[in-house]
Amino acid sequence: MATAKRLGIIAGHGTLDAAYPPLILATSAAALDMESAIFFTFYGLEIIKKGKADKLKVAPIANPAMPVPVPNIVGMLPGMTAVATGMMNNWMGKANVAKLSELLDMAVMSGVRLIGCQMTMDVMGIEREELLDEVEIGGAATFLNYVAEDGIALAF
């Protein structure tokens, strides 16, 4: 049997595209018989707010890698965030990519630890009740102690 290892991921961004890699890697790690945890900090906390995962948006400004490039002067117009988000959701749907809420459910079911960062919750005025019930609250030491034991750490 393979050696059990840990994967610790820091999720620091709250856009739709930035939310996928942490959830894909954490659930896959669990499938590979690794333990995994995601530490949600700053805007990453948006991902674990109740009912928020499927409403995350794509930024049309300062995002030159969009498959259909949007000049910043256009991206700043009202409604462009919704347009960019709609395009991305359309592409994701066509490729049959799982929704973020589905990946969150899979994460919980497969034992991925979801850790909310207390310090940034305080900074941004986020209450415990706004986050999913499965979330535990912790700080930098919680995350480091987790990955210190045979762990890999990634940040997004």
């Binding site: 894909i24 659930t27 896959s28 499938a31 590979l32 490729a95 049959n96 990519v97 799982a98 497969s110």
Partner: peptide
């Protein structure tokens, strides 16, 4: 069939 990464692996594991 039709499912994108990581679902095939997650479902295989299950």
């Amino acid at each position: 069939s039709g499912l994108a990464c990581p679902m095939p692996i997650l479902k295989t594991k299950k």
